[in-house]
Simulated scan of single mutants.
Amino acid sequence: MNDSFINGLKERLPDDLKESFSQEQLSALKVAFGARKWGQHKIDLRGTLRIWRWRYYFVFLAGRNKRDLTRREQELSRMATTLAIAIFLTFATLLGLIVLYLIKSALGIDLFPNYSLGLWGWFKNQFLI
């Protein structure tokens, strides 16, 4: 049988009981215990915190989502991906412009006479002197 719950249950049972359950009993046990696969996450952080006289538990699970996404979840996923790409491209563009400006300044090219952002002077003082 390829049922991971039933295989796991049989592995934990004593040898003399492993084959004594009927298929109906095994199915009933599977329903009773929920047969969920917990603990197979890349990140599985669980603990308790005691604050004054109360105790609180926390669970942080993270891993690959293997469920089928609803239409709303798919839209949110696309929007989050689009936002992440836009932020990355903005950051990369700004970084590229700063690098080009520093190269221009290092070569002594002056596009606007008597005007400077002050970035080259700061960079020279921090990193080159």
Rank of each mutant, 00 (worst) to 15 (best):
N2H: 11
N2P: 12
N2L: 11
D3C: 09
D3R: 03
S4F: 13
S4G: 08
S4Q: 14
N7S: 05
G8D: 06
K10S: 01
K10D: 02
E11P: 15
R12V: 09
L13N: 13
P14D: 05
P14I: 11
L17Y: 11
L17A: 10
E19R: 10
S20K: 05
S20H: 13
F21T: 08
S22A: 04
Q23I: 00
E24N: 06
Q25A: 02
L26H: 02
L26A: 07
F33C: 02
A35E: 03
R36V: 12
K37Y: 05
K37D: 07
W38Q: 07
W38F: 01
G39K: 09
Q40F: 07
H41N: 11
K42D: 08
K42V: 00
I43F: 13
D44V: 09
D44S: 07
L45T: 12
R46S: 13
R50W: 01
R53G: 06
W54N: 09
R55K: 10
Y57V: 14
F58G: 15
F60A: 13
F60R: 06
A62F: 11
A62S: 06
R64D: 13
K66C: 08
R67F: 13
L69C: 07
T70I: 04
R72G: 03
Q74M: 12
Q74W: 09
Q74P: 03
R78K: 11
M79C: 08
M79Y: 14
M79Q: 11
A80S: 11
T81V: 04
A84L: 03
T93F: 09
L94I: 03
L95G: 01
G96N: 02
L97I: 06
I98E: 05
I98C: 10
V99S: 05
L100I: 06
Y101T: 06
L102E: 01
G108V: 09
I109A: 01
D110S: 14
L111C: 12
F112Q: 15
P113K: 11
P113V: 08
Y115D: 12
Y115A: 14
Y115Q: 09
L117A: 15
G118H: 03
G118K: 07
L119F: 04
W122N: 02
K124W: 00
K124A: 00
N125C: 04
Q126H: 15
L128E: 15
L128C: 12
I129A: 06
